[in-house]
């Protein structure tokens, strides 16, 4: 319902983004979704994954801009402001934009997320292994400095950018619940770093959404 509605509204906005000839987008197949725009769950998941990547890497926002040039994604994502507008298509954000996310724009965000995740593969693995060790020893996450730092940064980003009045956000009131989300996103991001990571992330975003 929601995605259809925003899809109608956002068509004019998405027209300005020209289809990219970028090689990196070519491998991702267009799913059969209504309106050929990214559904609600896709927009939320993509934004949250980028949020997790920003919490892992302090220079993520600079690396994203560098990645746009390196991956030749500028025809789809022109600049920082355009990227901000795309990420604000997440309906759970404080400043959510009432526009849709076209499939090309979605692909560009997936390519960016995988690019960042690959850069941070080592850190992501370290954090996950540390969490498993802590869990095996029944210790809290505060016992590992980098893991605690990641969780704290994620919580900060999440609280400052998400709209607390939305029911889906109200679920993450306590730090424990936000930590659980952050750890889940961390392991999901790990699976995007592999050889077929991009395809796997792209297809998982439309799981249960295609006809």
């Amino acid at each position: 319902m929601d995605s259809d509605k925003t899809g109608m509204q956002g068509n004019s906005a998405t027209l300005e983004a020209e289809p990219s000839d970028s090689l990196s987008l070519a491998g991702l197949v267009d799913p059969d979704v209504p309106g050929q725009v990214c559904p609600r769950r896709t927009r939320i998941q993509l934004d949250w994954m980028l949020l997790a990547l920003e919490a892992i890497d302090l220079n993520a926002s600079e690396n994203i801009i560098a990645g746009l040039q390196e991956l030749q994604l500028q025809p789809v994502i022109k600049n920082r402001v355009h990227l901000w507008r795309l990420r604000n298509t997440n309906p759970l954000r404080r400043f959510s934009q009432r526009r849709s996310l076209s499939l090309d724009e979605g692909k560009a965000l997936v390519v960016l997320a995988c690019y960042l995740a690959r850069h941070e593969t080592g850190t992501i693995r370290q954090l996950l292994l540390a969490y498993e060790q802590l869990k095996a020893q029944n210790l809290s996450v505060d016992h590992h400095f980098r893991l605690a730092q990641y969780l704290e940064r994620f919580r900060g980003h999440f609280l400052s950018r998400m709209n607390p009045n939305r029911t889906a956000i109200a679920l993450y009131k306590s730090p424990e619940q936000t930590n659980e989300l952050a750890l889940n996103l961390l392991s999901q991001v790990l699976f995007c770093t592999g050889t077929a990571g991009m395809q796997r992330l792209w297809s998982s975003l439309f799981d249960g959404e295609v006809a």
Binding site: V29, P31, F191, G194, A196, R200, L205, G208, V210
Partner: peptide, 27 residues
Amino acid sequence: LMEAIDQLAADQQTLPDLQADIRPRSR
């Protein structure tokens, strides 16, 4: 495990007919 399988599936010189069927599940 997934990465090892993906590398194997991507390798055209090893079992080229083996394909990882990555697609979104329908409603």
